[in-house]
């Protein structure tokens, strides 16, 4: 598993332990936006809305020799615009982002996955966008991580 996959898996595993009003654990996804092409018959089944998508597309070395990595994963909340008001979407986002932007987040995701450690995690950028007919609001986290258990 790459460090990017580990970051996504650790965050998804942690988020699935949390309780959200209308986003069940099965609707918390890891990875790129869509697993299937838009033309695929499976396209509409790849993401059931509302959902949370955790994506960590890249990492960089924190220094030349340690093996520790800097990553900026994006945690986005997506709601169907046709059956959800923007206010309801933002309420949903507030629930999700409240469990992410905490001083215990780094420790929580470190404990969520074996052979993974997060040194620190601080909120970075955030924003909203329209994707197809869904609202998508996101926050990115600036994190230093490694693929080993550090004590």
């Amino acid at each position: 598993m790459t460090i990017e996959q580990k970051v996504e898996s650790a965050i998804v595993t942690f988020l699935k332990t949390q309780t959200f009003t209308d986003i069940p654990a099965a609707q918390i996804y890891r990875g790129i936006e869509h697993d299937a092409a838009e033309s695929s018959e499976n396209y509409t089944q790849t993401r059931i809305l509302p959902c949370i998508v955790v994506s960590c597309p890249a990492s960089t070395a924190s220094d030349p020799t340690s093996g520790n990595r800097m990553v900026v994963p994006e945690i986005s909340v997506q709601s169907q615009a046709d059956d959800s008001t923007n206010a309801a979407h933002l309420t949903r986002c507030a629930q999700v982002f409240a469990v992410v932007a905490t001083t215990t987040f780094a420790a929580s995701i470190s404990a969520a996955l074996a052979d993974f450690y997060c040194f620190f995690a601080v909120p970075a950028d955030g924003g909203s966008r329209i994707e197809e007919r869904s609202w998508a609001s996101f926050v990115t986290m600036r994190m230093m991580v490694c693929g080993a258990d550090i004590s």
Binding site: T2, I3, T65, S66, F119, F120, V145, C146
Partner: peptide, 15 residues
């Protein structure tokens, strides 16, 4: 067994 290596380093001045 760890498949990716890392080093224990002191980070941030949190606290």
């Amino acid at each position: 067994m760890a498949t990716l290596l890392g080093k224990a380093q002191i980070t941030t001045i949190d606290g």
